[in-house]
Design a binder for these strands. Structure first.
Length: 884
RNA sequence: GGGCGAUUGGCUCAGCGGGAGAGCGCCUCGUUCACACCGAGGAGGUCACUGGUUCGAUCCCAGUAUCGCCCACCA
């Protein structure tokens, strides 16, 4: 900022502002200043209430996309407001190691060198990933600066940091010792491409087209027909199951049938799980490759026969060995056909098929030995914390989805057959011993080997609210900033992340007591970003928006405002370039309003002197009243995470009320003869703009900083106090008077437009009935707004218009367009008659008068009276028009 | 298969028991000394359909249709 040495004594120095806002100039400079000043840095133990938000840690592989931009805009707005309110505000940044995603990225890089991770070996591969992370990881952190994120860079964390790894080991051991982590053979979701187990929620189901094939097992009377969509799994069948009460199969239950192609005989078992209504009422049982069948197998003590390996390749000895599962399917089918085993027709069949959410590969249910978290007790506590209000979900509606999940959660498979991640701290020793080591224990010595698997990446994310603050140690940060205040994230990771933070936060921090162990007190969920037509953004659709591109072209503030303006709780956000252009225009509007204020020596430093208050003009009282209202509204909307309404309220106050009306009304005083009045208005103007810029700052930090410092000469709007609502400014009389003035001005403008008078054309006019009216004092403003001059010399009014009980008689020189006037009056008459009709009809109904609230009836009476008066007036005018 | 939600001007959405709102788009006028990234005026909707409750329904209830989302181990 340049210091203007010509500033008047006692006034803050002022910068010259260019005629339009150029964001590129301002943003990087301001961000650097903020960081340098230490505004983003929170202080443990400071004597102020803490306000904490943890960033939803983006993948280290990630770069800033529009979804992050939305999330960060909302978080930053919350944090900036709290900081201005004097809270010890912390927004902690960091990244997630993102197990599969990152491993995939580095593996792809290796593949370009013709290598696989196995060529390097585990240790070298993990080194390579760290190397990659050092070089390319955290790109997104740099991009966050462009958005203006006020994160505390001194507290940046990574989920594989030493400290966070200690947290992972600590909680693993604690859960292990409490019997809440166990290892078992289970059917899990297996991705044959990523070659790892997945948890249930890492599987996306889609309705895929397949075939339902009916196959006859056994021969003649001792045969049974089963149906399957995965023909190749029949190689691993170890039974056929029927319902115990199904009369068709009572004689078969307990016998055996021959399994085609294998020469094996398998039992027919009776199991109540089988639905007799579905298909033939008989089902093939493949315990090693189907979760249902696994359960049936357990109940009947059936063997589990694994017939495919980790890649989905058939391992069962025979002609199909070595075929991929999707090659084996038609091959097995052909062989069955040849034996005449396929019965009836093969039906096209649409059914839900699971896909790996990382790579899209069809998931293969697979029997394997994995680690699980026993979630039932944890989930119970997680559900209760929301049920009893210790944690509140916004919008409340989404709490139902949360309950559905935590109240019926399956055990969580946490082991992954990857190399990149937190290694499971369990060792296997001589004689089948198993030992779980804590973070401060040495690994067991000779003869022990560590479990090769790593943990699900969400395991460490689940600890984020406290692992980032130093847990398990009792650190000043942990004491100051936990529980965190708000979790802001998209509803799409409610289960992945939010629910699991609840599970682990309540467990790990239980010693703090029920109120203080929650990971966050509020959860503010937003939606997904969509295009202008409400369609999902996707690269294939070509409708994606790159926030960095928008920041370059429209500015960070415009990008942020566009996102905030679309964000209602839980709602998706539709975006298009027209909208961000509109937001850019809004920045420019504020810019020019401030330029106007500076040109007119608006005075924000003097404050509103109590002695002056009584002398304030009506427009001054009006804008102060409106400011008080909009400040209260902004506070309420912030508390409810209603960012769309908040942005809208500020936009309309700033543009419609402040710029379009107040500044125009203020011009008369500022340019008027009364120096004292002008001084008062300069103070009100400075004060209102000062507070308006503060109110907008959380959403649009850069432009408001530039303008506020120029206006006030203050250090930074970031550390300026958040505006207080002053109830004493509420002034219904002033509001009513200005509203009346607006109606008068608008009415006359409509007349002028209808008459084809150019907006800039000055027209001599006199007012009848203004003298006695409350609007009398506003005559100079009204004349200025309407371009009406005092008659000078000859004045021959040839037209008149009425509004607010005032008649304006004008000398249009060119005369009046009678047809246009008649059209306007006729239209207004029709409206008035319709209004009178409606009111009259209502009032004619005895039940309405008897049962409706008195205020409603009175309102209808008033409307009827007003409409009738209007009709009389318009008829009279039309008659006069006809006579002329 | 289960659950949830939506259906309001051309588009995206607010409103949710007392006479329909916004932004953008559209039409007309305008070089007014903060801003053409602007100003002024205007057009445009039987609030999906059918019943019900009510003095009164866009708003509450039921059903229908269409669309969307989440969950799901019927081969």
């Amino acid at each position: 900022m340049t210091t203007a040495d010509h500033a008047a004594p006692g006034r803050p120095p002022r910068a010259e502002l260019p005629p339009a806002y150029l964001p590129g100039d301002v943003e990087s400079r301001r961000y650097a200043e903020w960081v340098k000043a230490g505004y983003f840095t929170a202080e443990a133990g400071r004597d102020a209430p803490a306000f904490t938000i943890m960033i939803p840690p983006p993948n280290v592989t990630g770069s800033l996309h529009i979804g992050h931009a939305l999330d960060h805009t909302l978080i930053d707005a919350l944090v900036r407001r709290r900081r201005m309110q004097g809270y010890n505000a912390l927004w902690l940044p960091g990244t997630d190691h993102a197990g599969i995603a990152t491993q995939n990225v580095v593996e792809r890089e290796l593949a370009r060198e013709g290598l696989s991770r196995h060529d390097l070996g585990r240790e070298a591969f993990v080194d390579r990933v760290w190397q990659w992370k050092a070089e390319y990881g955290g790109k997104i952190l740099g991009q966050m600066r462009r958005l203006g994120d006020s994160v505390d860079w001194t507290r940046e964390r990574f989920t594989m940091d030493e400290g966070l790894s200690r947290a992972v080991q600590t909680i693993f051991k604690r859960l292990f010792d409490d019997g809440l982590i166990y290892r078992a053979d289970r059917i899990i979701n297996w991705c044959p491409r990523c070659m790892t187990a997945l948890s249930d929620i890492e599987v996306d189901h889609s309705d895929d087209e397949g075939e339902l094939v009916s196959i006859r097992y056994g021969d003649g009377d001792a045969s049974v027909v089963v149906a399957t969509t995965r023909v190749e799994t029949m190689l691993g069948d170890t039974a056929v199951a029927v319902h115990p009460d199904d009369p068709r199969y009572t004689r078969l239950a307990g016998t055996t049938v021959e399994l085609p192609l294998t020469g094996r005989r398998i039992p027919v078992v009776a199991d109540p799980h089988v639905d007799p209504e579905f298909g033939t009422g008989a089902v093939k049982v493949t315990p090693a490759h189907d979760p249902d069948d696994f359960e049936i197998g357990r109940r009947h003590d059936l063997p589990s026969l694994t017939v495919m390996d980790e890649r989905g390749v058939v391992t069962a000895p025979g002609p199909f060995q070595g075929l991929d599962r999707f090659e084996a399917r038609p091959a097995v089918l052909a062989a069955l056909r040849e034996e005449g085993r396929v019965v009836a027709e093969i039906r096209p069949y649409v059914h839900a098929v699971g896909h790996c959410d990382r790579c899209g590969t069809t998931v293969e249910p697979r029997l394997s030995l994995q680690w699980f978290v026993k979630v039932e007790p944890l989930a119970k506590a997680a559900g209760d914390a929301v049920r009893d209000g210790r944690v509140r979900i916004y919008p409340a509606q989404l709490a139902a989805r949360y309950f559905d999940w935590v109240d019926d959660m399956h055990d969580w498979c946490i082991s992954r057959q990857l190399w990149w991640g937190h290694r499971i701290p369990v060792w296997y020793g001589p004689g089948g011993q198993v030992r779980c080591t804590g973070p401060d224990e040495d690994p067991p010595g000779e003869g022990w080997t560590q479990d090769p698997d790593v943990l699900d990446t969400w395991f460490s994310s689940a600890l984020w609210p406290f692992s980032t603050l130093g847990w398990p140690d009792d650190t000043p940060d942990l004491r100051t900033f936990y529980p965190t205040s708000v979790l802001v994230t998209g509803y799409d990771i409610l289960f992945f992340w939010v629910a699991r933070m609840m599970l682990f936060g309540l467990y790990a921090m239980s010693a703090a007591g029920p109120e203080e162990s929650v990971p966050f007190r509020q959860v503010a969920l937003h939606g997904l970003v969509r295009d202008a037509f409400g369609k999902k953004m996707s690269k294939s659709r070509g409708n994606t928006v790159d926030p960095l591109d928008w920041i370059d072209r429209f500015g960070a503030d415009a990008t942020r405002f566009t996102l905030a303006r679309g964000a209602s709780p839980g709602g998706d956000v539709a975006l298009s370039e027209e909208w961000v252009a509109g937001a850019r225009n809004f920045c420019n509007k504020l810019w020019n309003a401030t330029r106007f204020a500076l040109l007119n020596e608006a005075d924000s430093a003097a404050g509103l002197d109590a002695d002056d208050r009584a002398a304030l003009s009506v427009p001054d009282r009006w804008i102060l009243s409106r400011l008080a209202a909009v400040t209260a509204e902004a506070d309420a909307l912030f508390e409810e995470f209603e960012f769309a309404k908040l942005s809208d309220a500020l936009y309309h106050f700033a543009w419609d009320e402040f710029c379009d009306w107040y500044l125009e009304l203020a011009k008369a005083t500022l340019n008027g003869q009364d120096a004292a009045a002008a001084r008062r208005t300069r103070r009100v103007l400075g004060h209102v703009l000062d507070e308006l810029l503060r109110l907008i700052h959380p959403v649009m930090p850069f432009v408001t900083e530039e303008l506020w410092t120029a206006l006030t000469g203050g250090e930074s709007v970031m550390v300026a106090p958040w505006p207080q609502v002053r109830p004493q400014d509420a002034d219904p009389a002033a509001e009513a008077e200005v509203e009346s003035l607006m109606r008068l001005v608008t009415g006359v403008r409509r007349f002028r437009a209808d008459q084809g008078l150019r907006p800039s054309q000055r027209v001599p006019a006199v007012f009848d009935g203004l003298a006695g009216s409350p609007l009398a004092t506003h005559e100079p403003s009204i004349r200025a707004l309407l371009r009406l001059t005092e008659p000078a010399g000859e004045f021959a009014p040839n037209a008149s218009v009425q509004a607010e009980g005032i008649t304006v008689r004008l000398d249009t020189s060119s005369g009046i367009d009678v047809a246009a006037e008649r059209r306007r009056l006729t239209k207004e008459l029709a409206t008035a008659r319709a209004d009178a009709d409606t009111s009259a009809r209502k009032l004619a109904s005895p039940s309405f008068v008897a049962k409706a609230p008195a205020a409603v009836v009175a309102k209808s009476r008033d409307r009827l009276a007003a409409a009738e008066a209007e009709i009389a007036r318009l008829e009279e005018r039309l008659a006069a028009l006809a006579g002329s």
